[in-house]
């Protein structure tokens, strides 16, 4: 595609162009220079919440009316998941590969991916707060595979977590550590499968009792792995 000299348009037209870009395009544009970042910031694009999904990758989700902006770091394919199953304490430094997309009804309507990322996950949070000045992390959701990441690094990246959701990460010790590190929060939703034999230790129940909104998901009974198959 031939180039278009955007910056040589009248300033009002540049603003008009930016206002018509999708959230994905605004994020990508903001990465190009300080000036681009300031231009995008001045649009004051509305987005309020950002959910963080930590599995064997880290995903940011920013919902809009019908669409959701999704940004994924440390993505692993099925082969790499097996290969990296013993990986632990991965810090949230810059992941070279970034996948960013807009999806609607679980289908991508726009998508981009690059392998030259130099921003850490924390810098990405700051970048998104610049693009969407009112956005705040409201939920962090841990689930299968999250144990590969370093919890101190996660805590440093997301110092304030109002709401926490935990499914079994694949490592009971890691599940327990999440609670130790991140409680108290305003709300917590936790699955019983985070605990061995689905039994929540009394100490944990006591700790969670200080959380104003608590949901415990899953069966109350002691279910063996054979009976769930």
């Amino acid at each position: 595609m031939a180039a278009f000299p955007l910056t040589r348009l009248p300033a009002s037209s540049v603003e008009n162009v930016l206002r018509m870009m999708s959230p994905l395009q605004l994020v990508v544009f903001s990465l190009l220079s300080k000036k681009c970042k300031d231009q995008v910031n001045s649009l004051n694009t509305s987005a309020e919440t950002m959910r963080i999904q930590i599995t064997n990758s880290i995903v940011f989700e920013v919902p809009f009316d019908e669409d959701t902006l999704r940004i994924e770091f440390y993505e692993l394919d099925a082969f790499m998941v097996r290969l990296m199953r013993d990986e632990r304490n991965k810090t949230l430094r810059a992941a070279a590969k970034v996948t960013i997309g807009i999806y609607r009804n679980e289908v991508y309507t726009e998508y981009s991916q690059w392998f030259t990322n130099k921003l850490s996950v924390k810098q990405w949070v700051e970048q998104l707060k610049c693009v969407f000045p009112n956005v705040d992390v409201d939920w962090i959701h841990f689930s299968a595979g999250a144990f590969r990441f370093d919890l101190d690094s996660i805590q440093e990246t997301f110092p304030k977590i109002p709401q926490l959701s935990i499914n079994h990460t694949g490592d009971y010790g890691f599940n327990r550590l999440i609670l130790e590190k991140f409680l108290p929060t305003y709300a917590i939703s936790i699955s019983r499968n985070c605990f061995e034999d689905f039994r929540i230790p009394h100490k944990t129940i006591f700790t969670m009792s200080n959380v104003p909104n608590l949901w415990i998901e899953g069966p109350r009974m002691n279910i063996t792995s054979n009976s769930t198959l």
Binding site: F4, K34, T116
Partner: peptide, 30 residues
């Protein structure tokens, strides 16, 4: 006319990586 022509320029950003977008819009670095 400004709206539709600017929309056409905005559409050029669809699915671009940062490096591609810099080339499409001839955007200078810091």
């Amino acid at each position: 006319l400004l709206n539709v022509s600017c929309k056409k320029v905005a559409n050029m950003a669809q699915g671009k990586t940062p490096a591609q977008l810099r080339r499409v819009y001839l955007l200078p670095s810091d």
